[in-house]
Design a binder for these strands. Structure first.
Lengths: 262, 262
DNA sequence: CAGTGGTCTAGACCACACT
DNA sequence: GTGTGGTCTAGACCACTGC
């Protein structure tokens, strides 16, 4: 990583890969990769600060500006948060108001300054075998052990979301309905602290569906014919490893899924 | 903007506003504001290149790095696209594959390398008076003149999207059903070229709904009871001015609305 | 070849938070 | 005051594009 002279050639410059594309990778990308490795290895835990830019510049034998650009990209991806005068901190789902980082359901009245966290009710929590569909999403083999949760989220005592959640079993040993019910933290915050699983990114596929009888019952929708939003999410950790498949059914008569395009 | 010495104090530094908050604004933010003004004024048209970083640095009496940071932010907001070796270009909706920049509907089979643009069918195009709801969204007064479009988008001959579109009348003089039907460009691309209206950002609110009889008819859904996605969009131009209200009804039996969270 | 954006460095100073 | 991230400059060289 050390450069013999200022602005000297990049170490990888000019190297060709077997497929013929140049292997050029900017220094700051390499630094970013090293930082990602440290995050993934748990060298710095969520909520903690990482070393200062000057420290990292010294460690990697690189100028502060290069470290800065690497951290800029991590911050743009929400993996770290910069706080002027204090330092750079590993992102966490455990803070207040982070219940909604991955939950894009907003009251129709408009977002409040302090949106209330939903009430949670665990309906089911059991070990099971991965179906073909679950296995595909979680990069497992059909029949592998998974943990299946089902819960209902309510806003001001109105059941609004019914969620089925599938987690790869080996990463979540010891997770039970009792522990889930007793825990006050957002689920992803608890995953960080208890199972060292940090969700970093997610993809959602949204459809309109009609609930079946059981789904209507669990959401107190009997006697009505209300269409629901089906939100199918795959959540990923640092290394783009899928660690959760979640299917939510959202009532949208008093809320809406909000999104920004640019 | 000129600095008497390198790294001298920022021009606005230390200034206080009446409300007591410091008026500090980094130089690069001021440059960004000037660039935004030029974009908004049409000094550089969509698709054209803006002056080189060195040129702009000279024009504003600032270092290249400062201009660079300003352009970086514009690029992050998709207002501008950088192309190494060629220049920096004003974003446009008129290019190939940009039909889907604001349309997040994906075939369930998975995105293709060259997604086919949907077939378009104009159902209605008329001048009307803004309802209270439309006026609120477009920052107009109820009763002001608006243009109301209705169209159907089809994928491989299956009507899939029914859209109602409201535009502020004064900005779209001369837009008729005939012109719309004859135009091959994406609608936002045509808006840029013909009406100098460049959509830059949009907010969408998504719900699950049941179509009424007329909506079912227009989407060839008679005889079925299919829930649809209601996608309500407000699109904005450079100065955060809302220039379009659009309500789409999406079939999601063979497509899904896809979104990425981070 | 010249011109563009992209990377990297070194050094200075500013704004902010803690002590 | 000290240490953090944030801004700004000046200059060098690299990678890509097109003449």
């Amino acid at each position: 990583m050390a450069q013999p002279h200022p602005a000297s050639a990049n170490g990888a410059s000019g190297v060709e890969q077997h497929n013929g594309t140049p292997a050029f990778s900017p220094l700051y990308q390499q630094i970013k990769g090293l930082l990602l490795g440290s995050l993934q290895a748990g060298e710095w835990k969520p909520g903690e600060s990482i070393p200062s830019e000057m420290d990292l510049a010294g460690r990697y034998r690189v100028s502060q500006g290069t470290v800065r650009k690497a951290i800029d990209e991590l911050a743009a991806e929400n993996l770290v948060v910069r706080r002027q005068g204090k330092g750079t901190f590993v992102s966490t789902h455990s803070e207040q108001q982070s219940s909604f980082r991955f939950l894009r359901l907003t009251p129709d009245a408009g977002p409040m300054k302090n949106p209330a966290a939903p009430q949670r009710h665990i309906i089911d929590c059991r070990r099971a075998r991965a179906t073909a569909e679950v296995a595909r999403a979680l990069l497992m083999k059909p029949g592998d052990g998974v943990l299946h949760l089902r819960r209902v989220l309510s806003f001001s005592n109105t059941p609004t979301i019914l969620e089925d959640i599938w987690l790869p079993g080996p990463y979540f040993r010891g997770l039970t309905a009792e522990r889930l019910a007793a825990d006050e933290r957002p689920m992803y915050g608890m995953f960080e602290a208890e199972f060292n699983v940090h969700m970093v990114r997610a993809e959602e596929k949204i459809r309109a569906v009609l609930p079946d009888a059981e789904q209507r019952r669990l959401l107190n929708l009997d006697g009505t014919q209300m269409p629901l939003l089906s939100v199918e999410r795959v959540a990923f950790t640092y290394n783009d490893l899928p660690m959760e498949l979640r299917r939510g059914l959202y009532r949208t008569d008093a809320h809406h899924y909000s999104n920004v395009l640019s």
